[in-house]
Protein backbone atom coordinates (compact mmCIF):
# COMPACT_ATOMS: atom_id res chain seq x y z
CA UNK A 1 0.00 0.00 0.00
CA UNK A 2 1.22 3.49 -0.77
CA UNK A 3 1.07 5.46 2.45
CA UNK A 4 -0.81 8.71 2.22
CA UNK A 5 -0.80 11.61 4.59
CA UNK A 6 -4.51 11.18 5.13
CA UNK A 7 -3.60 8.13 7.17
CA UNK A 8 -2.49 10.34 10.05
CA UNK A 9 -4.31 9.24 13.18
CA UNK A 10 -6.59 11.58 15.10
CA UNK A 11 -3.95 11.78 17.81
CA UNK A 12 -1.24 12.86 15.34
CA UNK A 13 -3.57 15.49 13.91
CA UNK A 14 -4.44 16.67 17.42
CA UNK A 15 -0.78 17.16 18.38
CA UNK A 16 -0.13 18.79 14.99
CA UNK A 17 -2.98 21.25 15.32
CA UNK A 18 -2.67 21.78 19.07
CA UNK A 19 1.00 21.21 19.80
CA UNK A 20 1.89 20.92 23.50
CA UNK A 21 4.89 22.77 24.97
CA UNK A 22 5.49 24.74 21.81
CA UNK A 23 7.53 27.92 21.82
CA UNK A 24 10.71 29.62 22.95
CA UNK A 25 12.16 29.40 26.48
CA UNK A 26 13.91 32.16 28.38
CA UNK A 27 17.30 31.08 29.77
CA UNK A 28 17.11 27.36 29.10
CA UNK A 29 19.61 25.01 30.78
CA UNK A 30 20.00 22.88 27.69
CA UNK A 31 19.26 23.42 24.02
CA UNK A 32 19.64 21.13 21.04
CA UNK A 33 18.84 21.54 17.36
CA UNK A 34 18.70 18.63 14.96
CA UNK A 35 17.69 18.25 11.31
CA UNK A 36 18.36 20.08 8.10
CA UNK A 37 16.23 22.66 6.29
CA UNK A 38 16.98 21.10 2.91
CA UNK A 39 15.40 17.85 4.13
CA UNK A 40 12.38 19.76 5.33
CA UNK A 41 12.62 19.31 9.07
CA UNK A 42 14.49 21.08 11.84
CA UNK A 43 13.69 20.65 15.52
CA UNK A 44 14.88 22.74 18.44
CA UNK A 45 14.40 21.62 22.03
CA UNK A 46 14.94 23.79 25.12
CA UNK A 47 14.98 22.30 28.61
CA UNK A 48 14.89 23.71 32.09
CA UNK A 49 16.23 21.39 34.79
CA UNK A 50 15.49 21.11 38.49
CA UNK A 51 17.97 19.64 40.95
CA UNK A 52 17.14 16.13 42.08
CA UNK A 53 17.97 15.91 45.85
CA UNK A 54 18.32 12.13 45.59
CA UNK A 55 20.84 12.19 42.72
CA UNK A 56 22.73 15.34 41.75
CA UNK A 57 23.86 13.84 38.43
CA UNK A 58 20.28 13.12 37.46
CA UNK A 59 18.16 16.28 37.57
CA UNK A 60 14.51 16.42 36.61
CA UNK A 61 13.16 18.06 33.48
CA UNK A 62 11.10 20.84 34.99
CA UNK A 63 10.09 22.41 31.71
CA UNK A 64 10.60 21.63 28.04
CA UNK A 65 9.73 23.55 24.90
CA UNK A 66 10.05 22.80 21.22
CA UNK A 67 10.12 24.66 17.94
CA UNK A 68 9.85 22.71 14.72
CA UNK A 69 9.92 23.39 11.04
CA UNK A 70 8.51 20.28 9.48
CA UNK A 71 5.57 18.26 8.32
CA UNK A 72 2.58 17.31 10.47
CA UNK A 73 4.37 14.17 11.68
CA UNK A 74 7.48 16.14 12.67
CA UNK A 75 5.40 18.64 14.64
CA UNK A 76 3.27 15.92 16.30
CA UNK A 77 6.29 13.81 17.30
CA UNK A 78 8.03 16.91 18.69
CA UNK A 79 4.98 17.69 20.74
CA UNK A 80 4.61 14.10 22.00
CA UNK A 81 8.31 13.91 22.92
CA UNK A 82 7.98 16.96 25.15
CA UNK A 83 4.89 15.46 26.81
CA UNK A 84 6.75 12.22 27.50
CA UNK A 85 9.89 13.96 28.77
CA UNK A 86 8.35 16.58 31.03
CA UNK A 87 8.72 15.68 34.72
CA UNK A 88 11.09 12.79 34.05
CA UNK A 89 14.69 12.70 35.23
CA UNK A 90 17.23 13.11 32.46
CA UNK A 91 18.30 9.48 32.75
CA UNK A 92 14.71 8.38 32.28
CA UNK A 93 14.19 10.85 29.45
CA UNK A 94 17.31 9.67 27.65
CA UNK A 95 15.70 6.27 27.30
CA UNK A 96 12.63 7.57 25.44
CA UNK A 97 12.79 5.75 22.14
CA UNK A 98 11.40 6.76 18.73
CA UNK A 99 9.16 3.71 18.98
CA UNK A 100 7.71 4.97 22.25
CA UNK A 101 7.01 8.38 20.69
CA UNK A 102 5.35 6.81 17.67
CA UNK A 103 3.34 4.40 19.81
CA UNK A 104 2.10 7.20 22.06
CA UNK A 105 0.71 8.87 18.95
CA UNK A 106 -1.17 5.72 17.99
CA UNK A 107 0.58 5.12 14.71
CA UNK A 108 2.57 6.96 12.06
CA UNK A 109 2.30 6.36 8.31
CA UNK A 110 5.28 4.10 7.40
CA UNK A 111 6.92 6.83 5.31
CA UNK A 112 6.81 9.16 8.33
CA UNK A 113 8.28 6.88 10.96
CA UNK A 114 11.67 8.58 10.61
CA UNK A 115 10.12 11.76 12.01
CA UNK A 116 9.89 10.12 15.43
CA UNK A 117 13.64 9.47 15.28
CA UNK A 118 14.27 13.16 14.88
CA UNK A 119 12.39 14.13 18.04
CA UNK A 120 13.86 11.36 20.20
CA UNK A 121 17.33 12.12 18.82
CA UNK A 122 16.99 15.79 19.71
CA UNK A 123 16.14 14.89 23.30
CA UNK A 124 19.03 12.46 23.54
CA UNK A 125 21.44 14.95 22.03
CA UNK A 126 20.35 17.68 24.44
CA UNK A 127 20.87 15.44 27.47
CA UNK A 128 24.21 14.10 26.25
CA UNK A 129 25.47 17.63 25.64
CA UNK A 130 24.50 18.54 29.18
CA UNK A 131 26.18 15.46 30.61
CA UNK A 132 29.40 16.27 28.75
CA UNK A 133 29.32 19.81 30.10
CA UNK A 134 28.79 18.60 33.67
CA UNK A 135 31.52 15.98 33.45
CA UNK A 136 33.95 18.60 32.18
CA UNK A 137 33.20 20.93 35.07
CA UNK A 138 33.28 18.38 37.88
Amino acid sequence: MVPKITSYTEKVLDHFQNPRNMGQMKNPDIEATVGNPSCGDVLKLSLKLKENPKDKTNPKIEDIKFQTMGCAAAIATSSMTTVLAKGKTIKEAKNITPQEVAKSLGQLPPIKVHCSNLAADALKKAIEDWEKRINKCS
Binding site: G40, D41, G70, C71, A72, A74
Partner: peptide, 23 residues
Protein backbone atom coordinates in the same frame (compact mmCIF):
# COMPACT_ATOMS: atom_id res chain seq x y z
CA UNK B 1 7.23 23.22 5.55
CA UNK B 2 4.73 22.76 2.73
CA UNK B 3 2.96 19.62 3.86
CA UNK B 4 2.01 21.26 7.16
CA UNK B 5 0.63 24.26 5.34
CA UNK B 6 -1.26 22.08 2.89
CA UNK B 7 -2.78 20.06 5.72
CA UNK B 8 -3.85 23.12 7.73
CA UNK B 9 -5.50 24.57 4.63
CA UNK B 10 -7.13 21.21 3.95
CA UNK B 11 -8.71 21.37 7.41
CA UNK B 12 -10.33 24.64 6.26
CA UNK B 13 -11.63 23.00 3.08
CA UNK B 14 -8.97 24.49 0.80
CA UNK B 15 -7.23 21.91 -1.39
CA UNK B 16 -3.75 22.83 -2.59
CA UNK B 17 -0.49 21.08 -3.34
CA UNK B 18 3.15 21.34 -2.27
CA UNK B 19 6.55 20.31 -3.59
CA UNK B 20 8.01 19.63 -0.15
CA UNK B 21 10.22 16.60 0.43
CA UNK B 22 8.00 15.32 3.25
CA UNK B 23 4.99 15.20 0.98
Amino acid sequence: EGESLMLLLDKEGIEVSTGSACS
